[in-house]
Design a protein around this nucleic acid. Structure first.
Lengths: 124, 124
DNA sequence: TTACAAGCTGGAGTGCGCTCCAGCTCAAGC
DNA sequence: GCTTGAGCTGGAGCGCACTCCAGCTTGTAA
């Protein structure tokens, strides 16, 4: 796959893919005779996983750390597991906050509905 | 309350409190004879709510819109309710993604544990 | 009465995470 | 053989959300 296809399939822009490579989030792919990037299809799953880490609030520096560990192979399994476990905890806390906030939203929406009804047909 | 106390109680820096006022997230408080800000205690709850919107991914521009509606009083109840309902949906989707990602973390952690065990005491 | 902490303003600076651009090469089709 | 389109590099630029700074005023207390 050329970079354009990877971009289409992952939703990341071509510039972002090259940027991710530059900062070490994506391993530098092979090049063809013309010096152009040729990606294996592993990259799709990897980018998807990066997006999940991203969307659940892991910051760039940590994703880079994880990516570099990943590129170093099996000797880094323990370190990677520890990172994932730590991130799991972060997610768990965010989940709780989200649930609380959702409950608060419901409460406020209900309250606003009451107030709207009163405002539309004043009783006094 | 002076700005320093609000900062201590909310965890926002003094600069951030003034910045939030400048961009319209916090209503300009009264001033004392010396021209210094004097906040009512409402501000604590308001800042807490802003933080919850923030932490659940609402962006600045939308929080400002909500804050401005809030400052305009009851005539904006409907618009505010609609914003909260929309945000509730966003949170619900994020919740789902978080749950999926947490399951994936668990899966990977378990996998890594297996691989670690194999690496430590190779069987072949 | 002077030292010092807390607050004020306007504006510049920062870090993150991209995003855009100029100017180039290369491969394929007409 | 020339045009077009995809890709290349290095580097500049951008939007967001703060954060810091210089230079000033004011309130407290030793």
């Amino acid at each position: 796959m050329m970079i354009g296809e990877v971009s289409d399939r992952t939703g990341l822009s071509i510039d972002t893919l090259r940027f991710y490579e530059k900062i070490g989030l994506i391993a530098p792919p092979m090049r063809n005779d013309a010096g152009r990037r040729v990606y294996g299809k592993d990259v799709l799953g990897w980018v998807g996983f990066l997006e999940q880490l991203n969307a659940t609030g892991m910051k760039q520096a940590d994703r880079i750390r994880y990516a570099k560990l990943h590129q170093q192979g099996d000797s880094t399994l323990r370190a990677r597991r520890e990172m994932l476990q730590a991130h799991r905890e972060v997610i768990r806390e965010k989940l709780q906050l989200m649930q609380q906030t959702m409950a608060l939203m419901d409460h406020k929406v209900a309250l606003y509905e009451t107030l709207e009804a009163e405002t539309e047909t004043p009783q006094t």
